[in-house]
Nucleic acid binder design. Sequence first.
DNA 1: GAGTTTGAAACT
DNA 2: CAGTTTCAAACTC
Length: 736
Amino acid sequence: MDVVSPELNSLLPDEIMDTEDIEDVPHSQPGTTGVHSEPSDDAMTTSTATDSMLSASLATSTATTKTTDSVTGTSVTTSGLQKLTTPFTISPANRQIILNKVASQASEAAKSAGNPPQVIKQDGQKLLVTAIGKSGQPIVLQLPHTGSKPGVSQTAGDTKSQAPQFKVVTIGGRSDLKPVVGNQVTTLQTQQLKTVQIAKKTPASSAAPIKFIITKTVNSKGISPQTSVPPVITGRVLTQSSPVMPPRTITLSEPHNTNLQSIPGKKIAISPLKTPSKVTVVSVASPTSSASQKSVALPVNVALGQQILTVQQSTSVSPVKVATSQSTTQNIKPVAVGGVGGSQFKTIIPLATQPNVQQIQVPGSRFHYVRLVTATTASSTGQPSGPSTSSIQTAKPMVVSTAAVRMSVPVVPAQTMKQVAPKPLTSGPQVVTTTQTQQRLIMPATPLPQIQPNFTNLPPGTVLTPAPGGGNVGYAVVPAQYVTQVSECSLCAFWFEGFFSAETTSRPRKPCNCTKSQCLKLYCDCFANGEFCNNCNCNNCFNNLEHETERLKAIKTCLDRNPEAFKPKIGKGKEGESDRRHSKGCNCKRSGCLKNYCECYEAKIMCSSICKCIGCKNFEESPERKTLMHLADAAEVRVQQQTAAKTKLSSQISDLLMRTTPVISSGSGRLPYTFVTKEVLEATCECLLEQAKKAEQTHQPQVEAERMILEEFGHCLMRIISSAGKAKSDCASINC
DNA sequence: GAGTTTGAAACT
DNA sequence: CAGTTTCAAACTC
């Protein structure tokens, strides 16, 4: 059942999502403060051209949103919504957007499966999106719980199969804040609840324009097998805008999935962006019956930065295609995970299933991609792949599109697909026939252009990793089961903290050279920093998704030994102390804490009282340290000066080449003299002076100093002569 | 590049 | 917790 088909969704103008537009809508039901307005049964059953119904309640946390009344879709005057004749309910009182799927479509695959087609209102499909507004109140995009709705037609005796799926997306920096779902909390407790929290970088993000495009495939579990249509929610739902900010739009798009027999290969990419500008929606779409891929690329303006978020939940029979839309100049920020202290970006993505994960690597990119292979429940049918979904063995392109770029990545079912029975959402007998797939990918901030490489030719199982030296802000590949563990095991969350810590994402990581640790011990810097090995020189590396089991075990071992093993060692000190200090302190004995053996020195911080070092010289007043720092600074300055001088000299020579060409062309034969101008002399003298300074700083004897200077002088002369000779030959060639 | 030194991590 | 071993990075030649 689709609320809005991708096609229609794409036709919807963004403007209709503007809060202002919504505010202009006459409030047919002023004063409604419930979790969501319940459209009349007639309204709910009103079928659009897409047989979709959409009921949404929208509330914004911004003060500019004045809408406090529920607005039904029939009264919405925005063109886009009217086109869909979609009931649209706004309940700002609870800051909730309620998407209500009421119409269902018969699934061809379901029919083929022998299930009697039944029109079942897919009200059970629920999507909760919460956003932490400036006031700290969540913005809830919510699909109402159908079970609590009287009058919703359900299959008799299959109430449990109607169990709705919930997805909660929380936008905001407060990871500890739980989405407000009102009276539906009770329902959530008994049903699968999926929560994705997107950290906001700035508290003002609530007022910032947010545009969300979320395309998801809803788990068909809990839906009666008689349901001929896979539970799909599609459509744009939410728009928030402030007078001074671009509209924030949350688009929920769930394309039709008529091919229930496709392999549940999945990819989910959540790529948070560093630059708080936009949130890119990753559309995870199941192929339509026409086998056409629809990529929904809608810019999402989020104060915390751009994000690519793909949350996919599909039936086992639905082939998954992921389309990521992202506008350029976007950074990806990791989804915030609550409960993990210290990390800016944390992610909690509960997974009911244990999807397999495959790495996707794009050379030159610092993004890590993970293809999550759907863990399927026992499939009753062993359904052969339909023509459009014959992709169990066939790579399917994953379309990743941005505002300017569309990338395709072949999506091939995992070679090592795990048959892990997911946690049953409901006890309905239909569960057997459905497969629940859940995928989560969290990607640290990275400028969007970095993910522009053509993914078309990427082999399956590739991992998108940052290019060496290209900044360590790449996609962090988070295996689904890890994410699951994060939600289930707080200890494992530390691992993710390493993934998204500022340090991790701000500097390029040196390749490790591990030989014996399999990169599964803290000896390995990659592992210790919560990263997969990439472009490393390690041997027998297990720090990759291919050895997720071993790695997971290693992580657990480390965390058992030290729950803070993956926390950054350099953190904030106590109040009144330096901002940065080693969390444990060093234990140096011979280095004097003035070599990189010392973790404090390496981190360019001074040792503190918690250090157990012997003979420490890494303290504020240490003369050794001062000397060392002075020398280091001097060396740095010297290098800069030399570089500048040489650059200037080359520039001068080049300039002379240009200016003296006519003279040279005369064939005067006095070319070298032509080049020894005042500028060249000055540049040469600078080079010589630098050599003299260098000799002096390194306490070179006079003889050696003279030698260095003369040597430099020789170099300068050689440059001049070489340039002159080149100019002469060029001139000769020109004359010829 | 090979060998040595060093200190954190791992182990007992 | 302390002592020892293992390990990989830092360092030296």
